[in-house]
């Protein structure tokens, strides 16, 4: 990969689809940093803040009942943390940096940057539940409940800040069901797509 050509890979994912593992692997293959919840750690270090305070509200939907907005100023910690991250991501992108970013509305918030390639990883309910059961040592019922809860949070978070709906294939360059080919082959497919689009943009 040509180091000087900026590459931003946005990976949206359903809970249990293996999207995060795929994002990690893509970061390794393209030799670029991966940002997920560590993004807030970096922001906290730069601004001399307590990291834990910010993490609590990471990728959480805004609680509309308990917080208000006055003249465009919101006092919701979730909304402020989200905006701090969006701003930071745009700053990184404007500086010409290459990176993989997991979730955080990045497919919309970084849409203006030509270097962006956005991917959404989904999966079959049963396959996702199996992955969650293994990873978190849960029963099938608990895994399915957790999956439903986490996906609801991601969806609510995303749809509050973006016009396009979470997981809607029209908002992403490439949507893929990881249950069809398995994590590794799915990663290969995405890598191939990214290389093609990055080197020969339409």
């Amino acid at each position: 990969m040509e180091k000087e050509k900026q590459l931003i890979i946005s990976v949206g994912r359903e809970f249990g689809s293996g999207g995060h593992v795929i994002a990690e692997e893509l970061a390794k293959r393209f030799d670029i940093p991966l940002y997920d919840d560590n993004l807030l750690m970096q922001i906290a270090e730069e601004k001399n803040l307590v990291h834990g305070d910010l993490t609590k509200y990471d990728e959480k939907p805004k609680n509309k009942l308990f917080y208000r907005t006055v003249k465009g100023h919101s006092n919701s910690p979730e909304e402020n943390v989200a905006n701090i991250q969006f701003e930071y991501l745009r700053k990184l992108a404007s500086e010409g940096k290459s990176f993989v970013i997991v979730g955080r509305c990045s497919e919309t918030k970084l849409k203006d940057f030509p270097a962006l390639i956005s991917v959404f990883v989904l999966g079959d309910k049963e396959v996702k539940a199996k992955r969650i059961m293994e990873k978190y040592d849960l029963s099938e019922e608990d895994a399915k409940q957790m999956m439903q809860r986490e996906d609801w949070k991601r969806k609510s978070y995303h749809n509050y800040y973006c016009k396009g709906k979470w997981g809607d294939s029209r908002n992403y360059d490439f949507s893929i069901n990881s249950s069809r080919l398995g994590i590794e082959k799915t990663t290969d497919m995405i890598e191939m797509f990214i290389k093609e689009k990055h080197n020969n943009p339409a």
């Binding site: 803040l49 208000r68 006055v70 006092n75 910690p77 402020n80």
Partner: peptide, 24 residues
Amino acid sequence: TPIGASANVVGISVASKSGHLIGW
């Protein structure tokens, strides 16, 4: 409360934008 008056919302928002979050 944080939602009781407009000044509360605006003040908390200014603090939060700089990363100093103020929850309930």
